[in-house]
Amino acid sequence: MLRIENLEKRYQTGDLALNSVNLEVPKGQVMALIGPSGAGKSTLIRCVNRLVEPTAGKVFLGDIELAHLGASDLRRARSRMGMIFQEYALVERLSVMENVLSGRLGYVGFWRSFLRKFPQSDIDEAFNLLTRVGLDHMANKRADELSGGQRQRVGICRALIQNPDLLLVDEPTASLDPKTSRQIMRLICELCEERQLAAIINIHDVLLAQMFARRIVGLQLGNIVYDGPPEGLSPEVLTQIYGEEDWEATIEAAKDLDEDEAEAELVEAVDNVITKPGSTT
């Protein structure tokens, strides 16, 4: 689905953020991208939808090469890629519904969007998505009235209503508490599964990455230093990615988590029952 060839980004300050990265993400695969701050995780996914212009290399979405598209083709390509942001990045003064519908901007003309006259099919889809994430009763609230977890769910709806082929997820849990983090990660993974989406998830929490992703890519100073299943994250690998530290505890915890997964699901189900009506997570 997504193929990255020799992608390089050098900032104007001279810092090399990405050094000839090669990567391929097939349809339906959820890939977690881990690495320390400044490793270039954020730059990598922003180079894919060209919020950051790459200096060299190629990015293919399907058959389309993205790195050299003109303005209007780029817009069309962007509308096929959903992006979820660290600080939610909702437009705070718009309502939840307007935020979700803004995901359709690539598909409707200016005047329709200006007058907020979106096609009924888009509005149906928006309600479906909001119901799916348990927020349909919030549709007319302003985005800045929502809690962090709720905002991130709206952000997910905005990305999914684009009907994307690829999800770019930038630190979805960095501003959330541990429990909400897991809920959000689970939601993203389930939705990817349902819709057979390819996804790149930037995440600095190794535990969460191991829990939810079947493939992990480790980035260090703009180079890929690990690419494989979560089980392969040995202390040596983690040291290579993050530097010297006692990693045994982390790996143990991840193993426990796997075993606890079934139990966690149960707890989650109960939580959902409790928190859903008038949820204020």
């Binding site: 780029l74 962007r78 942001f85 909702l90 437009v91 901007l105 690539g106 200016f110 990305a159």
Partner: peptide
């Protein structure tokens, strides 16, 4: 806030739509 503006850009909005929404 540049992030809100970036988010609207990332959905493939046109320039005028971007002005209007972000």
């Amino acid at each position: 806030d540049p992030v809100q503006a970036e988010a609207i850009k990332s959905v493939g909005a046109g320039w005028l739509q971007w002005l209007n929404y972000a």
